Simulated assay, not measured.
Amino acid sequence: MAEMKLVEGEELLIKKQVSHIKTLLVVPQPNPGNLFITNKRVVFTPTQGRSSSAFEYKLEEIASFSVGLMNTITLLTKDGEKHKLSGLFNKSIIEVLEKINITREK
């Protein structure tokens, strides 16, 4: 899926190409795709790799995020799920997450 459908009252804040890093056994595997952040949710749709790397959360389900080496972003949900994202322009994603008041862990 190259695009996502917005629901009523939803506004796209950012769309970026990133890789969702999933670990298979002990080997991290990048799954390229698109990350969409709206005023209501965060959605990742893979363009290559495993379709199981797709995820979608309402903003209220995101507990926090952290930033690692080379601006790798890890999203943490309130249910304890972690999603690691890498990309060339993650600084703009970080700015949007902060703007919509997702807590940044140090």
Rank of each mutant, 00 (worst) to 15 (best):
E8P: 00
G33C: 05
L69N: 10
L76H: 15
P28M: 05
G9Q: 09
V7T: 12
S51H: 06
G33A: 05
T74I: 14
V26Q: 08
V42G: 01
S19D: 12
R41A: 05
F55L: 08
E95A: 14
L76P: 00
I37A: 01
Q17L: 08
S86K: 14
I100C: 07
H20P: 00
K106P: 13
A2K: 13
E3Y: 14
E11G: 01
E95T: 13
V7K: 14
F36E: 00
S52W: 09
P32T: 03
L6T: 10
K5A: 12
K16S: 13
L75Y: 03
P30H: 03
V18K: 00
E61M: 10
R50G: 13
N71S: 15
P46S: 10
G49I: 01
R41K: 12
H20W: 02
L85A: 06
T77L: 08
K5Y: 08
L97A: 03
S86C: 04
V42F: 02
Q48S: 10
A54R: 13
V26K: 07
K78A: 10
I62G: 04
Q48A: 12
Q48P: 01
I102P: 00
G87F: 01
G80W: 10
P28Y: 05
K82I: 11
L76G: 02
L76K: 14
R104P: 02
E105C: 03
E81L: 12
N34V: 02
K91A: 12
K99T: 09
E11L: 12
Q29V: 13
V26H: 05
G33D: 02
G49C: 05
Q29D: 02
E8Y: 09
S53A: 15
T38H: 05
V18H: 00
Q29H: 04
L76N: 13
L59I: 15
K106R: 11
K84Q: 15
K5Q: 15
K16R: 14
A54D: 09
R41L: 04
T45S: 12
K15A: 10
E10V: 09
L12Y: 08
L75W: 02
G80K: 11
T103Y: 14
S66H: 04
R41E: 07
N39R: 06
E8D: 14
E8F: 09
I37N: 00
N101G: 05
S64V: 03
L24S: 06
K15P: 02
F55R: 01
K84Y: 09
V67E: 11
L85G: 04
K106M: 08
K15Y: 03
N101E: 15
